[in-house]
Design a protein around this nucleic acid. Structure first.
Length: 468
RNA sequence: GGCGCGAUGGCAGAGUGGUCAUGCAGCGGACUGCAACUCCGUUAACGCCGGUUCGAUUCCGACUCGCGCCUCCA
Protein backbone atom coordinates (compact mmCIF):
# COMPACT_ATOMS: atom_id res chain seq x y z
CA UNK A 1 0.00 0.00 0.00
CA UNK A 2 1.56 3.24 -1.17
CA UNK A 3 1.84 5.88 1.54
CA UNK A 4 2.78 9.48 0.81
CA UNK A 5 3.62 12.28 3.20
CA UNK A 6 1.33 15.19 2.46
CA UNK A 7 2.58 18.68 3.30
CA UNK A 8 -1.04 19.79 3.60
CA UNK A 9 -1.93 17.38 6.41
CA UNK A 10 1.64 17.02 7.75
CA UNK A 11 1.37 13.27 7.87
CA UNK A 12 1.72 10.14 5.82
CA UNK A 13 -1.48 8.78 4.36
CA UNK A 14 -2.44 5.97 1.98
CA UNK A 15 -2.47 7.21 -1.58
CA UNK A 16 -5.82 7.17 -3.35
CA UNK A 17 -5.88 8.34 -6.97
CA UNK A 18 -8.75 10.24 -8.56
CA UNK A 19 -8.84 7.70 -11.37
CA UNK A 20 -7.93 4.09 -10.68
CA UNK A 21 -4.42 3.26 -11.90
CA UNK A 22 -3.64 6.78 -13.02
CA UNK A 23 -1.59 9.50 -11.37
CA UNK A 24 -1.66 13.09 -12.51
CA UNK A 25 1.29 14.97 -11.09
CA UNK A 26 2.39 18.56 -11.49
CA UNK A 27 5.82 19.72 -10.31
CA UNK A 28 7.04 23.30 -10.33
CA UNK A 29 10.02 23.51 -12.63
CA UNK A 30 12.78 25.94 -13.34
CA UNK A 31 12.90 29.64 -14.10
CA UNK A 32 15.26 29.50 -17.03
CA UNK A 33 17.56 32.51 -16.63
CA UNK A 34 20.69 30.65 -15.52
CA UNK A 35 22.23 27.18 -15.39
CA UNK A 36 20.59 24.68 -13.04
CA UNK A 37 22.27 24.20 -9.68
CA UNK A 38 22.52 21.13 -7.51
CA UNK A 39 19.35 22.12 -5.65
CA UNK A 40 17.42 21.98 -8.91
CA UNK A 41 19.07 18.63 -9.53
CA UNK A 42 17.69 17.35 -6.28
CA UNK A 43 14.11 18.15 -7.22
CA UNK A 44 14.61 16.68 -10.68
CA UNK A 45 16.11 13.45 -9.35
CA UNK A 46 13.59 13.19 -6.53
CA UNK A 47 10.54 13.32 -8.79
CA UNK A 48 12.31 11.22 -11.40
CA UNK A 49 12.80 8.43 -8.86
CA UNK A 50 9.18 8.77 -7.77
CA UNK A 51 7.95 8.57 -11.35
CA UNK A 52 10.20 5.64 -12.22
CA UNK A 53 9.07 3.74 -9.14
CA UNK A 54 5.36 4.39 -9.65
CA UNK A 55 5.61 3.32 -13.28
CA UNK A 56 7.50 0.18 -12.29
CA UNK A 57 4.52 -0.65 -10.07
CA UNK A 58 2.14 -0.31 -12.98
CA UNK A 59 0.79 3.20 -12.44
CA UNK A 60 0.05 5.30 -15.48
CA UNK A 61 1.89 8.46 -14.43
CA UNK A 62 1.24 11.70 -16.24
CA UNK A 63 4.09 13.92 -15.05
CA UNK A 64 3.91 17.61 -15.87
CA UNK A 65 6.76 19.97 -15.02
CA UNK A 66 6.53 23.55 -16.18
CA UNK A 67 9.15 25.92 -17.46
CA UNK A 68 8.94 29.54 -16.35
CA UNK A 69 10.22 31.42 -19.36
CA UNK A 70 9.17 34.95 -18.58
CA UNK A 71 9.76 36.91 -15.38
CA UNK A 72 11.78 39.80 -13.92
CA UNK A 73 15.02 37.88 -13.60
CA UNK A 74 14.85 36.58 -17.16
CA UNK A 75 14.16 40.03 -18.55
CA UNK A 76 16.99 41.52 -16.52
CA UNK A 77 19.49 38.83 -17.49
CA UNK A 78 18.59 38.95 -21.17
CA UNK A 79 19.07 42.69 -21.14
CA UNK A 80 22.46 42.34 -19.40
CA UNK A 81 23.51 39.81 -22.02
CA UNK A 82 22.17 41.94 -24.86
CA UNK A 83 20.10 39.05 -26.11
CA UNK A 84 16.38 38.51 -26.46
CA UNK A 85 14.31 36.78 -23.82
CA UNK A 86 13.74 33.91 -26.27
CA UNK A 87 17.44 33.51 -26.99
CA UNK A 88 18.25 33.35 -23.30
CA UNK A 89 15.46 30.95 -22.37
CA UNK A 90 16.08 28.63 -25.32
CA UNK A 91 19.76 28.40 -24.36
CA UNK A 92 18.95 27.67 -20.74
CA UNK A 93 16.29 25.11 -21.60
CA UNK A 94 18.78 23.27 -23.80
CA UNK A 95 21.34 23.40 -20.99
CA UNK A 96 18.77 22.08 -18.52
CA UNK A 97 18.02 19.16 -20.79
CA UNK A 98 21.71 18.37 -21.13
CA UNK A 99 22.08 18.37 -17.36
CA UNK A 100 19.07 16.13 -16.93
CA UNK A 101 20.27 13.70 -19.56
CA UNK A 102 23.63 13.46 -17.81
CA UNK A 103 21.90 12.67 -14.53
CA UNK A 104 19.67 10.05 -16.19
CA UNK A 105 16.57 12.10 -15.36
CA UNK A 106 13.80 11.06 -17.73
CA UNK A 107 11.83 13.85 -19.36
CA UNK A 108 8.44 14.66 -17.85
CA UNK A 109 5.40 13.74 -19.93
CA UNK A 110 5.02 17.42 -20.80
CA UNK A 111 7.03 20.58 -20.11
CA UNK A 112 4.60 23.44 -20.64
CA UNK A 113 6.01 26.96 -20.96
CA UNK A 114 4.37 29.98 -19.44
CA UNK A 115 4.64 32.00 -22.64
CA UNK A 116 2.72 29.32 -24.54
CA UNK A 117 -0.24 29.60 -22.16
CA UNK A 118 -0.91 33.33 -22.01
CA UNK A 119 -4.51 32.87 -23.19
CA UNK A 120 -5.27 30.40 -20.42
CA UNK A 121 -3.60 32.68 -17.89
CA UNK A 122 -5.72 35.65 -19.01
CA UNK A 123 -8.86 33.51 -18.88
CA UNK A 124 -8.08 32.41 -15.34
CA UNK A 125 -7.42 35.98 -14.17
CA UNK A 126 -10.70 37.07 -15.82
CA UNK A 127 -12.58 34.44 -13.84
CA UNK A 128 -10.96 35.64 -10.62
CA UNK A 129 -11.86 39.24 -11.40
CA UNK A 130 -15.46 38.25 -12.20
CA UNK A 131 -15.75 36.34 -8.95
CA UNK A 132 -14.35 39.24 -6.97
CA UNK A 133 -11.11 37.47 -6.01
CA UNK A 134 -9.01 39.84 -8.08
CA UNK A 135 -9.02 43.50 -9.05
CA UNK A 136 -7.30 45.69 -11.60
CA UNK A 137 -5.41 48.43 -9.80
CA UNK A 138 -4.66 52.03 -10.71
CA UNK A 139 -1.12 51.21 -11.79
CA UNK A 140 -2.26 48.75 -14.47
CA UNK A 141 -1.46 45.62 -12.45
CA UNK A 142 -4.08 43.05 -11.47
CA UNK A 143 -3.91 41.75 -7.89
CA UNK A 144 -5.32 38.77 -6.02
CA UNK A 145 -7.49 39.80 -3.06
CA UNK A 146 -5.97 37.50 -0.43
CA UNK A 147 -8.39 38.30 2.39
CA UNK A 148 -11.33 37.30 0.21
CA UNK A 149 -10.13 33.67 0.18
CA UNK A 150 -11.16 32.32 3.57
CA UNK A 151 -8.84 29.33 3.51
CA UNK A 152 -5.73 31.32 2.66
CA UNK A 153 -2.70 29.84 4.46
CA UNK A 154 -4.03 26.32 4.91
CA UNK A 155 -1.02 24.62 3.32
CA UNK A 156 1.55 26.22 5.62
CA UNK A 157 -0.62 27.12 8.62
CA UNK A 158 -0.39 30.84 8.08
CA UNK A 159 -3.00 33.12 9.45
CA UNK A 160 -3.76 36.31 7.63
CA UNK A 161 -3.55 38.49 10.74
CA UNK A 162 -0.04 37.27 11.53
CA UNK A 163 1.02 37.63 7.95
CA UNK A 164 -0.21 41.20 7.81
CA UNK A 165 1.58 42.25 10.99
CA UNK A 166 4.78 40.43 10.10
CA UNK A 167 4.73 41.49 6.49
CA UNK A 168 8.12 42.22 4.99
CA UNK A 169 6.71 42.79 1.56
CA UNK A 170 7.23 46.27 0.24
CA UNK A 171 3.98 48.09 0.39
CA UNK A 172 2.73 48.84 -3.07
CA UNK A 173 0.43 51.84 -3.03
CA UNK A 174 -1.95 50.41 -5.58
CA UNK A 175 -2.69 47.29 -3.53
CA UNK A 176 -5.74 47.13 -1.30
CA UNK A 177 -3.75 45.07 1.18
CA UNK A 178 -0.03 44.40 1.50
CA UNK A 179 -0.76 40.66 1.34
CA UNK A 180 -2.27 40.88 -2.13
CA UNK A 181 -0.06 39.45 -4.83
CA UNK A 182 0.20 40.25 -8.50
CA UNK A 183 -1.55 38.21 -11.19
CA UNK A 184 -0.82 40.47 -14.14
CA UNK A 185 2.01 42.96 -14.35
CA UNK A 186 1.59 46.05 -16.47
CA UNK A 187 4.31 46.40 -19.10
CA UNK A 188 7.26 48.71 -18.51
CA UNK A 189 9.17 50.31 -21.38
CA UNK A 190 11.32 47.84 -23.29
CA UNK A 191 9.79 44.73 -21.75
CA UNK A 192 8.10 41.85 -23.53
CA UNK A 193 4.34 41.99 -23.16
CA UNK A 194 1.02 40.57 -24.27
CA UNK A 195 -2.31 42.30 -24.77
CA UNK A 196 -4.96 41.73 -22.14
CA UNK A 197 -8.30 43.19 -20.98
CA UNK A 198 -6.26 45.21 -18.45
CA UNK A 199 -3.74 46.51 -20.96
CA UNK A 200 -0.39 45.20 -22.16
CA UNK A 201 1.61 43.24 -19.62
CA UNK A 202 2.76 39.80 -18.54
CA UNK A 203 1.72 37.17 -16.03
CA UNK A 204 2.80 37.17 -12.40
CA UNK A 205 4.69 34.12 -11.23
CA UNK A 206 2.04 32.14 -9.34
CA UNK A 207 -0.76 32.32 -11.89
CA UNK A 208 1.12 30.42 -14.62
CA UNK A 209 1.15 27.21 -12.57
CA UNK A 210 -2.56 27.45 -11.83
CA UNK A 211 -3.25 27.98 -15.52
CA UNK A 212 -0.90 25.30 -16.88
CA UNK A 213 -1.90 22.62 -14.40
CA UNK A 214 -5.57 23.27 -15.21
CA UNK A 215 -4.78 23.08 -18.90
CA UNK A 216 -2.74 19.84 -18.65
CA UNK A 217 -4.44 18.04 -15.75
CA UNK A 218 -7.80 19.67 -15.04
CA UNK A 219 -9.22 21.47 -12.02
CA UNK A 220 -8.24 18.77 -9.52
CA UNK A 221 -5.28 16.45 -9.75
CA UNK A 222 -3.44 13.93 -7.57
CA UNK A 223 0.02 15.19 -6.67
CA UNK A 224 1.58 18.64 -6.68
CA UNK A 225 5.30 18.79 -6.00
CA UNK A 226 8.15 21.22 -5.83
CA UNK A 227 11.24 22.41 -4.02
CA UNK A 228 11.62 23.22 -0.33
CA UNK A 229 11.07 26.95 -0.64
CA UNK A 230 7.84 26.79 -2.59
CA UNK A 231 5.11 25.99 -0.02
CA UNK A 232 4.94 29.63 0.96
CA UNK A 233 4.04 31.76 -0.78
CA UNK A 234 4.03 30.08 -4.17
CA UNK A 235 1.92 27.01 -3.50
CA UNK A 236 -0.29 28.84 -1.03
CA UNK A 237 -1.03 31.35 -3.78
CA UNK A 238 -1.65 28.64 -6.35
CA UNK A 239 -4.24 27.11 -4.04
CA UNK A 240 -5.89 30.50 -3.52
CA UNK A 241 -6.06 31.16 -7.26
CA UNK A 242 -7.19 27.74 -8.42
CA UNK A 243 -9.65 26.92 -5.68
CA UNK A 244 -11.25 30.36 -5.89
CA UNK A 245 -11.53 30.17 -9.67
CA UNK A 246 -12.52 26.51 -10.04
CA UNK A 247 -14.51 26.08 -6.86
CA UNK A 248 -12.94 22.73 -6.00
CA UNK A 249 -9.88 21.17 -4.40
CA UNK A 250 -6.70 21.97 -6.31
CA UNK A 251 -4.32 19.07 -5.50
CA UNK A 252 -4.89 16.10 -3.20
CA UNK A 253 -1.27 15.46 -2.18
CA UNK A 254 1.48 18.03 -1.76
CA UNK A 255 5.07 16.79 -1.88
CA UNK A 256 8.17 18.89 -1.21
CA UNK A 257 11.79 17.92 -1.60
CA UNK A 258 14.26 18.88 1.13
CA UNK A 259 16.99 21.50 0.75
CA UNK A 260 20.60 21.06 -0.28
CA UNK A 261 23.00 22.64 2.18
CA UNK A 262 26.56 23.80 1.87
CA UNK A 263 28.45 24.19 5.13
CA UNK A 264 25.16 23.89 7.02
CA UNK A 265 23.66 26.77 5.10
CA UNK A 266 20.94 26.45 2.55
CA UNK A 267 22.26 26.59 -0.97
CA UNK A 268 20.49 29.45 -2.68
CA UNK A 269 20.79 32.02 -5.36
CA UNK A 270 20.53 34.87 -2.90
CA UNK A 271 23.38 33.54 -0.77
CA UNK A 272 25.44 32.92 -3.88
CA UNK A 273 26.73 29.64 -2.42
CA UNK A 274 25.41 27.43 -5.18
CA UNK A 275 27.10 24.96 -7.46
CA UNK A 276 25.74 24.42 -10.93
CA UNK A 277 25.15 20.89 -12.12
CA UNK A 278 27.73 21.36 -14.84
CA UNK A 279 30.33 22.53 -12.30
CA UNK A 280 29.79 19.40 -10.27
CA UNK A 281 29.85 17.13 -13.32
CA UNK A 282 33.31 18.47 -14.18
CA UNK A 283 34.59 16.67 -11.11
CA UNK A 284 32.28 13.75 -10.56
CA UNK A 285 30.76 10.92 -12.53
CA UNK A 286 27.10 11.80 -13.21
CA UNK A 287 25.92 8.59 -11.61
CA UNK A 288 27.82 9.50 -8.44
CA UNK A 289 26.02 12.85 -8.37
CA UNK A 290 22.66 11.18 -8.88
CA UNK A 291 23.37 8.60 -6.18
CA UNK A 292 24.50 11.32 -3.79
CA UNK A 293 21.06 12.89 -4.22
CA UNK A 294 19.02 9.67 -4.17
CA UNK A 295 20.63 8.04 -1.20
CA UNK A 296 19.07 10.42 1.35
CA UNK A 297 15.33 10.50 1.97
CA UNK A 298 13.75 13.07 -0.32
CA UNK A 299 12.32 15.19 2.50
CA UNK A 300 15.54 15.47 4.55
CA UNK A 301 18.13 18.10 4.00
CA UNK A 302 21.30 16.93 2.31
CA UNK A 303 24.79 18.32 2.76
CA UNK A 304 26.89 19.01 -0.29
CA UNK A 305 30.58 18.40 0.32
CA UNK A 306 33.61 16.70 -1.15
CA UNK A 307 33.25 14.00 1.48
CA UNK A 308 29.63 13.22 0.76
CA UNK A 309 30.26 12.95 -2.97
CA UNK A 310 33.24 10.73 -2.28
CA UNK A 311 31.15 8.53 -0.04
CA UNK A 312 28.55 8.16 -2.78
CA UNK A 313 31.36 7.15 -5.11
CA UNK A 314 32.64 4.51 -2.68
CA UNK A 315 29.17 3.05 -2.25
CA UNK A 316 28.65 2.78 -5.98
CA UNK A 317 32.04 1.10 -6.25
CA UNK A 318 30.82 -1.61 -3.94
CA UNK A 319 27.80 -2.20 -6.18
CA UNK A 320 29.83 -2.28 -9.36
CA UNK A 321 32.59 -4.44 -7.85
CA UNK A 322 29.91 -6.97 -7.01
CA UNK A 323 28.25 -6.74 -10.42
CA UNK A 324 31.66 -7.00 -12.07
CA UNK A 325 32.66 -10.43 -13.31
CA UNK A 326 29.32 -12.12 -12.77
CA UNK A 327 29.29 -14.98 -15.26
CA UNK A 328 26.73 -14.68 -18.05
CA UNK A 329 24.48 -17.52 -17.10
CA UNK A 330 20.94 -18.63 -17.76
CA UNK A 331 18.84 -18.90 -14.65
CA UNK A 332 15.36 -20.17 -13.99
CA UNK A 333 12.68 -18.60 -11.84
CA UNK A 334 13.42 -21.43 -9.44
CA UNK A 335 17.08 -20.33 -9.26
CA UNK A 336 15.86 -16.83 -8.55
CA UNK A 337 13.49 -17.98 -5.85
CA UNK A 338 16.21 -20.09 -4.25
CA UNK A 339 18.50 -17.09 -4.24
CA UNK A 340 15.93 -15.23 -2.16
CA UNK A 341 15.11 -12.71 -4.89
CA UNK A 342 11.41 -12.50 -4.19
CA UNK A 343 11.88 -11.60 -0.57
CA UNK A 344 14.44 -8.92 -1.38
CA UNK A 345 12.21 -7.45 -4.06
CA UNK A 346 9.21 -7.36 -1.75
CA UNK A 347 11.21 -5.57 0.92
CA UNK A 348 12.44 -3.09 -1.68
CA UNK A 349 8.84 -2.42 -2.69
CA UNK A 350 7.74 -2.06 0.93
CA UNK A 351 10.49 0.50 1.49
CA UNK A 352 9.55 2.52 -1.58
CA UNK A 353 5.84 2.25 -0.82
CA UNK A 354 6.59 3.91 2.51
CA UNK A 355 6.87 7.46 1.21
CA UNK A 356 9.65 6.56 -1.21
CA UNK A 357 12.19 5.51 1.39
CA UNK A 358 15.20 5.31 -0.89
CA UNK A 359 17.80 4.93 1.92
CA UNK A 360 16.03 1.83 3.13
CA UNK A 361 15.59 0.52 -0.41
CA UNK A 362 19.31 1.03 -1.01
CA UNK A 363 20.18 -0.82 2.19
CA UNK A 364 18.27 -3.80 0.80
CA UNK A 365 20.26 -3.54 -2.42
CA UNK A 366 23.42 -3.77 -0.30
CA UNK A 367 22.13 -6.88 1.40
CA UNK A 368 21.68 -8.31 -2.08
CA UNK A 369 25.26 -7.35 -2.89
CA UNK A 370 26.43 -9.37 0.07
CA UNK A 371 24.47 -12.40 -1.17
CA UNK A 372 25.76 -11.86 -4.68
CA UNK A 373 29.38 -11.83 -3.53
CA UNK A 374 28.84 -15.14 -1.77
CA UNK A 375 27.02 -16.70 -4.73
CA UNK A 376 29.86 -15.67 -7.02
CA UNK A 377 31.95 -18.28 -5.21
CA UNK A 378 29.30 -21.00 -5.19
CA UNK A 379 26.62 -20.73 -7.85
CA UNK A 380 26.71 -19.00 -11.22
CA UNK A 381 22.95 -19.26 -11.70
CA UNK A 382 22.18 -17.77 -8.30
CA UNK A 383 24.76 -15.04 -8.79
CA UNK A 384 23.32 -14.16 -12.19
CA UNK A 385 19.81 -14.10 -10.76
CA UNK A 386 20.76 -11.74 -7.93
CA UNK A 387 22.87 -9.52 -10.17
CA UNK A 388 20.03 -9.26 -12.63
CA UNK A 389 17.60 -8.22 -9.92
CA UNK A 390 20.02 -5.68 -8.43
CA UNK A 391 20.31 -4.01 -11.84
CA UNK A 392 16.54 -4.14 -12.33
CA UNK A 393 15.82 -2.50 -8.96
CA UNK A 394 18.72 -0.12 -9.53
CA UNK A 395 16.96 1.03 -12.69
CA UNK A 396 13.99 2.09 -10.56
CA UNK A 397 16.37 4.46 -8.78
CA UNK A 398 18.09 5.37 -12.04
CA UNK A 399 21.40 3.82 -11.03
CA UNK A 400 23.55 0.76 -11.87
CA UNK A 401 22.77 0.83 -15.57
CA UNK A 402 26.37 1.16 -16.82
CA UNK A 403 28.64 -1.78 -17.41
CA UNK A 404 30.76 -2.33 -14.29
CA UNK A 405 33.86 -1.90 -16.42
CA UNK A 406 32.71 1.47 -17.71
CA UNK A 407 32.01 2.75 -14.21
CA UNK A 408 35.09 1.33 -12.52
CA UNK A 409 37.60 2.20 -15.21
CA UNK A 410 36.03 5.53 -16.15
CA UNK A 411 36.74 7.47 -19.31
CA UNK A 412 40.25 8.49 -20.19
CA UNK A 413 40.66 12.08 -19.09
CA UNK A 414 43.29 14.61 -19.89
CA UNK A 415 46.15 14.52 -17.40
CA UNK A 416 45.37 10.99 -16.32
CA UNK A 417 46.89 7.69 -17.37
CA UNK A 418 45.07 6.16 -20.32
CA UNK A 419 43.77 2.61 -20.24
CA UNK A 420 46.54 1.71 -22.69
CA UNK A 421 49.26 3.14 -20.44
CA UNK A 422 47.84 1.23 -17.52
CA UNK A 423 47.78 -2.07 -19.41
CA UNK A 424 51.45 -1.61 -20.33
CA UNK A 425 52.43 -1.03 -16.71
CA UNK A 426 50.38 -4.02 -15.60
CA UNK A 427 52.21 -6.22 -18.11
CA UNK A 428 55.56 -4.98 -16.77
CA UNK A 429 54.39 -5.83 -13.28
CA UNK A 430 53.21 -9.31 -14.34
CA UNK A 431 56.70 -9.94 -15.70
CA UNK A 432 58.32 -8.70 -12.51
CA UNK A 433 56.04 -10.87 -10.44
CA UNK A 434 56.83 -13.91 -12.58
CA UNK A 435 60.50 -13.24 -11.80
CA UNK A 436 59.60 -12.83 -8.12
CA UNK A 437 60.96 -9.31 -8.34
CA UNK A 438 58.48 -8.02 -5.78
CA UNK A 439 60.33 -4.78 -5.21
CA UNK A 440 59.74 -3.90 -8.85
CA UNK A 441 56.15 -5.15 -8.95
CA UNK A 442 55.28 -3.17 -5.80
CA UNK A 443 56.99 -0.11 -7.24
CA UNK A 444 54.78 -0.30 -10.31
CA UNK A 445 51.69 -0.84 -8.19
CA UNK A 446 52.57 2.16 -6.01
CA UNK A 447 53.13 4.25 -9.10
CA UNK A 448 49.64 3.34 -10.29
CA UNK A 449 48.09 3.97 -6.88
CA UNK A 450 49.61 7.43 -6.94
CA UNK A 451 47.58 7.98 -10.13
CA UNK A 452 44.43 6.67 -8.50
CA UNK A 453 44.60 3.26 -10.13
CA UNK A 454 43.85 0.29 -7.91
CA UNK A 455 45.01 -3.18 -8.95
CA UNK A 456 43.31 -6.42 -8.17
CA UNK A 457 45.09 -9.74 -8.65
CA UNK A 458 43.05 -12.86 -9.08
CA UNK A 459 43.35 -16.32 -10.55
CA UNK A 460 42.26 -14.93 -13.93
CA UNK A 461 44.96 -12.26 -13.89
CA UNK A 462 45.19 -8.62 -12.88
CA UNK A 463 42.33 -6.18 -13.28
CA UNK A 464 42.22 -2.50 -12.40
CA UNK A 465 39.88 0.34 -11.63
CA UNK A 466 40.05 4.01 -10.87
CA UNK A 467 39.68 4.40 -7.12
CA UNK A 468 37.99 7.19 -5.26
C1' G B 1 7.52 37.59 16.38
C1' G B 2 4.43 33.71 13.34
C1' C B 3 4.50 28.72 11.03
C1' G B 4 7.19 24.20 10.57
C1' C B 5 11.38 20.49 10.74
C1' G B 6 15.35 18.04 13.09
C1' A B 7 18.83 16.00 17.20
C1' U B 8 20.74 8.09 16.22
C1' G B 9 27.46 4.64 17.09
C1' G B 10 34.06 7.95 14.55
C1' C B 11 31.29 9.76 9.81
C1' A B 12 26.95 9.29 6.55
C1' G B 13 22.05 7.59 7.20
C1' A B 14 17.24 4.33 7.93
C1' G B 15 14.16 2.44 11.59
C1' U B 16 11.65 0.30 15.81
C1' G B 17 7.64 0.06 22.53
C1' G B 18 11.44 -5.45 24.38
C1' U B 19 16.66 -10.01 19.36
C1' C B 20 20.53 -7.31 12.73
C1' A B 21 19.42 -1.33 9.53
C1' U B 22 22.80 -0.29 5.64
C1' G B 23 27.54 1.99 3.66
C1' C B 24 32.33 3.95 5.02
C1' A B 25 36.02 3.87 8.90
C1' G B 26 38.09 0.61 13.19
C1' C B 27 39.43 -4.23 15.28
C1' G B 28 40.40 -9.92 14.83
C1' G B 29 40.66 -13.81 11.18
C1' A B 30 40.56 -16.18 5.86
C1' C B 31 42.43 -15.24 0.91
C1' U B 32 47.22 -12.84 -1.16
C1' G B 33 54.45 -12.91 -2.18
C1' C B 34 52.57 -8.31 0.27
C1' A B 35 48.17 -5.70 -1.03
C1' A B 36 43.49 -4.60 -3.26
C1' C B 37 38.67 -7.01 -4.11
C1' U B 38 35.82 -10.56 -1.41
C1' C B 39 34.33 -13.58 2.75
C1' C B 40 33.81 -14.84 8.22
C1' G B 41 33.69 -12.63 13.06
C1' U B 42 33.56 -8.06 15.94
C1' U B 43 33.48 -3.04 18.64
C1' A B 44 30.10 0.94 18.86
C1' A B 45 24.34 5.10 19.17
C1' C B 46 19.83 6.79 20.06
C1' G B 47 20.53 15.67 22.83
C1' C B 48 18.77 16.86 28.19
C1' C B 49 14.85 16.35 32.10
C1' G B 50 10.27 14.44 33.56
C1' G B 51 5.75 11.31 32.49
C1' U B 52 3.00 6.82 30.51
C1' U B 53 4.56 1.52 30.57
C1' C B 54 6.47 -4.67 33.21
C1' G B 55 9.82 -2.25 29.68
C1' A B 56 11.12 3.85 25.66
C1' U B 57 16.00 5.65 21.31
C1' U B 58 10.80 4.72 19.72
C1' C B 59 4.61 7.47 22.78
C1' C B 60 3.47 12.34 25.72
C1' G B 61 5.23 17.14 27.98
C1' A B 62 9.04 20.74 29.13
C1' C B 63 14.07 22.24 28.00
C1' U B 64 18.66 22.96 25.14
C1' C B 65 20.81 23.22 20.51
C1' G B 66 20.54 23.32 15.09
C1' C B 67 17.76 24.29 10.57
C1' G B 68 13.87 25.95 6.99
C1' C B 69 9.81 29.29 5.41
C1' C B 70 7.58 34.14 6.41
C1' U B 71 11.48 38.83 0.21
C1' C B 72 13.16 36.37 -5.87
C1' C B 73 14.85 31.35 -4.83
C1' A B 74 14.28 24.01 -6.16
Amino acid sequence: MLQIYNTLTKQKAPFTPLVEGRINMYVCGITVYDYCHIGHARVMVCFDVITRYLRSRGWDVNYIRNITDVDDKIIKRASENSESVEQLTERMIDAMHEDEDALAVLRPSQEPKATAHIDEIIALISTLVEKGFAYPASNGDVYYRVEKFAEYGKLTNQNVEELRSGSRVEVEEAKESPLDFVLWKAVKPGEVSWESPWGAGRPGWHIECSAMSKCCLGDTFDIHGGGPDLPFPHHENEIAQSEAANGCTYANYWMHAGPVRVNSEKMSKSLGNFFTIRDVLEKYNPEVVRFFLARVHYRSYIDYSEDSLKEARVMLERFYQALNGVAECEFSSEDAANAGINDFEQRFIDAMDDDFNTPKAISILFEMVNELNKFKKTSNASAAAVAHKIAELGCVLGILQQSPDAFLKGDDKEGELSAGDIEVLIQQRVTAKANKDYAESDRIRDELVAQGIILKDSREGTSWFRGS
